[in-house]
Design a protein around this nucleic acid. Structure first.
Lengths: 193, 193
DNA sequence: GTCTATATTTAGATAGAC
DNA sequence: GTCTATCTAAATATAGAC
């Protein structure tokens, strides 16, 4: 075995918690479960995260930050909404396959139930970026003028729905195979006449 | 005060539990909370529902049955997917306003976390009815040929997304006002060229 | 069927040695 | 910073009178 740095330890606690939350849910996972699975002492967990909520919050901020970064990168690498949205769907679908626990935690978890005071993922940074992106495209005449909420729901609601189905085990094939058709489909909602 | 029949009592337990689950979540609601809020003894609850899961299951079956009935009625009253889907969106949006707790419980709750063995809402009766409805419209040439999962996600993913936003407090206006535009938008995804 | 009182278990959290 | 041992509160569930 090798010795762990403090950072490694913290990360391992988070990684382990994420998987347990994914498999059993936040409330069915005890701090003792995390301690056992991460092979770390319970004292260590409380030292770093204060309490169980602290673990949830740390995870939330980590994953939200990563998502923000991804959206930012996508917006830099593409100029039009059509390309950007497509890249975003690709990103989400890929992530759902490679990091299902993380995807689940971001999209699914009833955060309010265990992180009171934390603002909903729908009001968070990456979500706002996407809204902004759509508003811009509307102003520039790339897409139809629509209620912004309806436009974003129409553009990404289908993809999100498919992710839910996949994470629920209803879809058997990997999501990336659906990305092209999903996006073409969604685009029709907002495309100019 | 008036005396309650056994049925009234059971229903009141369920109604109370639903609201508490909506406000605080299943795991943050204790059986004692339900007992207190419903003004019923804890013995009564255990007598009727066996355990806490029993309450959740009874609620689930009740609400799923009501949803199945609604879908069935909509299918009877309309013949084409365009009308049926529109009526379904209306139904969902109205229900989200008049019975948010019920809507939340159906759409949102992580049922697997507290009702192991129960099949996901996505594999349940009303969901299958909708899938069938779409398949039929595809066969009859009312809509484009698409992967069925993508088609249903495209048609109703946007509406579901808006319901989530509304229940999360992100949308301030009542949903029914969005129904027409939402459905017109969604329909473009599947409309013939 | 309904009630109160109680048993049992387990969770979250802390103390204090190292 | 990490650990073990322990405390305390609360939740699910049961027993048994009415």
């Amino acid at each position: 075995m090798k010795t762990l740095t403090t950072q490694d330890r913290q990360q391992r606690i988070l990684d382990t918690a994420l998987v347990l939350f994914y498999n059993s849910g936040y409330f069915n996972t005890s701090v003792h479960d995390i301690q056992r699975a991460a092979d770390v002492s319970i004292g260590s967990i409380y030292h770093h995260f204060g309490n169980k909520q602290g673990i949830a919050r740390a995870l939330y901020h980590d994953l939200a930050a990563r998502m923000t970064e991804a959206v930012f990168r996508i917006m830099e690498e593409n100029t039009e909404l059509y390309q950007r949205g497509r890249a975003f769907v690709d990103h989400l679908f890929t992530m759902a396959e490679t990091a299902p626990a993380a995807m689940h935690y971001i999209l699914y978890a009833r955060h309010r139930e265990f992180m009171p005071g934390e603002k909903s993922i729908c009001s968070s940074k990456p979500f706002e970026q996407v809204q902004q992106m759509i508003g811009q495209a509307m102003d520039q005449g790339e897409i139809r003028k629509l209620n912004p909420a309806i436009a974003s729901a129409a553009l990404f609601g289908g993809a999100i729905r498919l992710i839910h189905l996949r994470l629920d085990g209803v879809l058997e094939s990997p999501l990336p195979g659906y990305a092209a058709e999903t996006w073409q489909c969604a685009w029709r909602c907002v495309a100019l006449p």
